[in-house]
C-alpha cells in the first residue's frame, strides 16, 4: 500500500504539475508578502519548481522514506536553501513554511482527481503528508544546525575581538576584559598579554576586570598564573576593577589573589605611572578647560 501510495503521488505530481506549481506559487507569494524584502517571490517560485521536479523523480522510485538515497539530491537542495536562510536571519517559521505550504496544493490536486477510489486517495494523501512532513523536519534540522554554526563562529570572533591589549603609556599596557571568562578564553587572553609585553617591552600590565560579571576558582587561578608568568618575564601586573561580589566570592572560595589590586583602571594607571617614575600634574595656571596635553 505504501508503495502504491508513493506511485500515486508521483503520478499526480507528473500529471498535475503545472496546476500544483501555480497553486504553490500563490501560496509562496502570500507567505512572502507578510515578510517582504528578504527574498523575491520569483526566486522562491524558482526554488519551488526545482524542489517539485526533484520530489517527483524521487517519489517515482517508489520509495516513501525522505531519508533514503532516492531523496539525496532533494535533501541537498533543501539543505542549501535552509542554510542560506539561517545565515540571512530567517525565522524558523518562515523557513519551514516553504516546504509545508506545498501541502494544500497537493491535497487540492488529489481531491479533483477523477476516478480515484477512497482507498487510493487515502493512501496517496498519507504518503504525501508523511513525505512533506519529513522534508519539512529535515529543513528545520539543517536550519538549526546552521544557526548553531553561526553561534559558534560568533563566539570565536567575540573571544578574539574581546581581548585587545592596549598601550596606555610607554611601558604600560592594559587589558580590559569584558564578559564571562571561561578557561579557554582566559588562555588566549593570557598568551596575548604575555606576547604583547614582549612586543612593547612593557614593564607593567594592568588587567582590568570591571566588565567581568563573575569569577570562578578556575578563572581566578588563570589570572594568578598570568600574573606569575608576567613576573617571570620581568613585568608586573596590576589587577583593577574587582567587583565587591567577586572579591567576596573569591575570599569564600579560598582563592587568595596575592597581587597588587586597585579599585579602578584610573587608580591602576596612576600607580603604574608612579612605578615607571612619571607623575601627572595639572598644567596650571592655564584654565583647566583649555589645558592641552
Amino acid at each position: 500500500m505504501d508503495r502504491s501510495g508513493t506511485m500515486l503521488f508521483a503520478d499526480l505530481l507528473g500529471r498535475a504539475k503545472t496546476r500544483i506549481m501555480a497553486d504553490w506559487s500563490a501560496e509562496l507569494e502570500r507567505a512572502n508578502a507578510r515578510v517582504p524584502g528578504r527574498v523575491s517571490t520569483q526566486e522562491l517560485v524558482a526554488q519551488g519548481r526545482e524542489v517539485l521536479e526533484l520530489l517527483q523523480s524521487a517519489a517515482s522510485s517508489g520509495d516513501s522514506d525522505p531519508t533514503s538515497a532516492a531523496y539525496s539530491r532533494l535533501r541537498d537542495l533543501l539543505a542549501e536553501m535552509s542554510r542560506a536562510r539561517a545565515f540571512q536571519g530567517f525565522s524558523p517559521t518562515e523557513t519551514a513554511t516553504f516546504v509545508f505550504s506545498l501541502k494544500k496544493p497537493v491535497f487540492d490536486a488529489f481531491r479533483t482527481e477523477p476516478d480515484l477510489s477512497p482507498d487510493a486517495m487515502s493512501a496517496g494523501l498519507w504518503t504525501a503528508t508523511t513525505l512533506i512532513d519529513g522534508l519539512g523536519l529535515f529543513t528545520m534540522e539543517v536550519f538549526q544546525k546552521s544557526r548553531e554554526e553561526v553561534i559558534i563562529r560568533q563566539q570565536r570572533e567575540i573571544s578574539e575581538l574581546s581581548t585587545p591589549v592596549v598601550k596606555l603609556w610607554d611601558g604600560v599596557l592594559a587589558l580590559p576584559l569584558i564578559g564571562t571568562l571561561d578557561s579557554e578564553r582566559t588562555q588566549v587572553v593570557m598568551e596575548n598579554l604575555l606576547q604583547s609585553i614582549v612586543d612593547h617591552t612593557a614593564e607593567i600590565a594592568i588587567i582590568d576586570i570591571t566588565g567581568v560579571p563573575t569569577v570562578d576558582t578556575l578563572v581566578a587561578q588563570h589570572l594568578l598564573k598570568t600574573v606569575a608568568a608576567a613576573r617571570l618575564m620581568g613585568a608586573d601586573c596590576i589587577i583593577s576593577g574587582i567587583r565587591p561580589q567577586i572579591a567576596q566570592t573569591m575570599v569564600h572560595l579560598g582563592v587568595e589573589l596575592n597581587v597588587v589590586s586597585k579599585a579602578t583602571l584610573a587608580d591602576a594607571l596612576a600607580l603604574a605611572l608612579q612605578r615607571i617614575g612619571r607623575r601627572v600634574v595639572s598644567a596650571s595656571p592655564a584654565p583647566a578647560v583649555r589645558a592641552s596635553a
Binding site: 609585553i197 598564573k225 617571570l232 618575564m233
Partner: peptide, 29 residues
C-alpha cells in the same frame, strides 16, 4: 632576563614561580 612567554607559562604550570629570583624584560632593564 628575557624569559619567553611560552617558557614562563610552562614554568608556572610546572609549579615553579621562583620567588627569590629577580627578573627583567631585557639586558638593558
Amino acid at each position: 632576563v628575557g624569559m619567553r612567554p611560552a617558557v614562563a607559562i610552562t614554568l608556572v604550570e610546572l609549579g615553579l614561580s621562583m620567588p627569590g629570583v629577580n627578573t627583567a624584560l631585557n639586558v638593558e632593564r
